[in-house]
Design a protein around this nucleic acid. Structure first.
Lengths: 382, 382
DNA sequence: GATGTTTGTCGGCCTTTCCGACAAGTGTA
DNA sequence: TACACTTGTCGGAAAGGCCGACAAACATC
């Protein structure tokens, strides 16, 4: 998660957009059309990072065929052949790498610039990077993190991580001065309970909370699954009446129907719970929900391989990902499935733990997972 | 000089600005008012960099009193006491430094982040940095370069500097694709003959060039002075008819009235010369013009200490710098003079070589130096 | 299974960067 | 002048990062 003050200026040679929303839309449309026009499929490669790739000791070893397919051709009259590569991530940040062909036997390497990328993105062995060459021969850069335990932004982590101190200090300062700032949030990189989707919050504000109210709340199990627990509101009071008076942060005291000692929190926030409004409520099957579901109104996660593809190949449109119809490009397979097969020769379903399909029979839970189903991945039976 | 594609999006919690110009203005006004309201003078310190400060071997040694006055207090329960500092330069770029209090005897140091700053800004021993804590306790960062020889951005420099390759490649690509991009140009850091002020260019376009036309052109002498040479247009032809057909870049062949072998260029561009339009023209004295004069429409040079002060202390307004009236804050002295005295105990006039006063008796040269006199420094007699 | 190709890891070596030691420089009694 | 305090520079050590060597892993026949 990163924070940035709102002070960037938009300029354009000919157009001045009247609102940022409109600017967004037009910019998207323009790039969309530019790509759609040629209808030339983008090329890409994906590699799971090795220990050597992520170590500070060296650079990134580029698979030979991948380098030759995706990167601009090297000038082999140079000794050794080398060039500068510029690739953009989903946030339009440009990353510059030195691409060199050297060693005995010869191999393609990314050296200078690589370690900055790895440390900035906090990549580790097992994570994957994705290089895409779009129809304009521009390099795009995506990444997907391995499904490892992600420590949340706990205070202990904060104090050991000087970067976060600066970020949080800046945010606190901006908030104290009523200066607007933007949050770039990557829920897969470091899910934070302090970041609440606006829609979720607004929806919660409609809820009338009272003592004795029954609710359900979702928890992740150790096997990356999900289950719900029933509970009752037993009190409403400030978590810290001195420091955070009238804060809604964990101001609900709760009791749980089935409680193992200390396993469930004694205090929750209103936006975490799902009020049980109907006695005829049917609980959906408690398995296979996305580990970090996308929320409407949140910026795209840059670990979302799908988004990178959509950016490079917008003509895929809604066929891509989940819309109930198989992809017209790769019938019966999502691109990521196909990619994974190429990469590991595994049957895609074996990796479904990374991108579980989403199932919800309950319209009440819309805001948790299926508000924007195109952002979730669909694993269809082969 | 840096380039940035135009693709930043402006968002704000409550306001959406209809044009970027308006946004600029309002943002400026807002910060201005916020500061003016409290009218609390900002604190600052300035240090001339030593060889150790700029060497790659170590960090920046912070004068003790300066650190205690300007930086946020350290937590001395830590061993060693350290914190993250974030300071913004004139371009609103944030620079992050590790501030640590260590060594025997104990001293304040900036370590991590410092060398990046030094190399990015191309600082050398003798240059000065300026840390300002504004009324909101935010750190601002300014710098002033010593009056040394500045190599221009020659092609040999470019090829040895991988950073520039990436930047120029990005610019070339953007130009080839008709994508707008912004140039951040710091003429004092690396003056480039490839960057031409728009006003100067437009003005030149009014000039009717013909064979035999007489003109003058300004050159810098080795002693940082300036003198003009007279010449005659002897030909008009493309510099490279194949690669840059119809380019106005050095398409004028010229002869010089007084020419030492090879000392003056054989080809110039129309915007470099000053046509001699009147036989009664009087040549101004050829000494004491600003070394890198400010151009209208150009972004501020971040080595301009004055600008940093104005940003932190906008209430100084027009009294600050040169308006013909002495500063009401430091009567008879500019802030920089006063600062220099504090720093070096020298009489300020002894340093006037850094900021020569501007003299121009010729209205034809308005766009070269006195369009915005408030940006130039005035050395008044004590 | 033999052979050739690809690529992950390692040691070597140089540079960068962090650290305290030490002493030169500065201010004050 | 004596003393305390400040700070510039240095050597040492650790980390970062570029290089080819080597061999494991992989592909192909």
């Amino acid at each position: 998660m990163t924070l940035q003050p709102v002070n960037k200026v938009v300029k354009d040679g000919k157009n001045l957009y009247s609102t940022s929303a409109q600017y967004d839309k037009e910019a998207l449309l323009a790039s969309d059309m530019g790509l759609k026009h040629s209808r030339q499929p983008a090329e890409f490669f994906c590699k799971t990072l090795t220990a050597s790739d992520t170590s500070t000791h060296g650079g990134f070893s580029v698979p030979r065929r991948a380098a030759e397919k995706i990167f601009p051709p090297l000038d082999f009259s140079m000794q050794p052949p080398a060039q500068e590569l510029v690739a953009r991530d989903l946030h339009e940040n440009a990353w510059t790498f030195r691409h060199i062909y050297r060693g005995q036997p010869k191999r393609h390497l990314l050296t200078t610039g690589w370690s900055v990328f790895v440390s900035t993105k906090r990549l580790f062995a097992g994570d994957s990077v994705l290089f895409i060459r779009d129809a304009k021969s521009q390099l795009l850069l995506g990444l997907r993190r391995a499904n490892r335990q992600q420590p949340a932004l706990s205070s202990s982590v904060i104090s050991s991580d000087s970067m976060h101190i600066g970020i949080l200090a800046a945010a606190a300062h901006a908030a104290a001065n009523f200066s607007p700032f933007t949050i770039f949030y990557n829920p897969r990189a470091s899910p934070s309970e302090f970041v609440v989707p606006l829609a979720k919050y607004y929806k919660a504000m409609y809820t009338q909370v009272s003592l004795g109210m029954r609710f359900r709340m979702m928890f992740e199990t150790e096997e990356s699954g999900v289950r719900r627990y029933m509970g009752t509101v037993t009190g409403i009071s400030d978590l810290d009446p001195v420091r955070w008076k009238n804060s809604q942060w964990r101001n609900l005291q709760v009791g749980w129907d089935e409680s193992t000692a200390g396993e469930r929190p004694r205090r929750v926030s209103i936006w975490e719970i799902e009020p049980v409004v109907s006695p005829f409520f049917i609980c959906p099957p408690p398995f296979f929900r996305p580990r970090f579901p996308k929320q409407p109104g949140m910026p795209d996660d840059d670990s979302d391989v799908e988004s990178a593809f959509k950016r490079a190949m917008p003509w895929l449109g809604d066929d891509f990902g989940m819309r109930g119809t198989p992809s017209s490009i790769f019938p019966g397979l999502s691109l990521v499935q196909w990619m994974n097969m190429q990469q590991s020769n595994q049957f895609p379903a074996a990796q479904s733990g990374f991108f579980p399909s989403t199932v919800s029979s309950n319209p009440l839970h819309n805001n948790l997972s299926i508000d924007d189903p195109s952002k979730l991945l669909n694993f269809q039976a082969p």
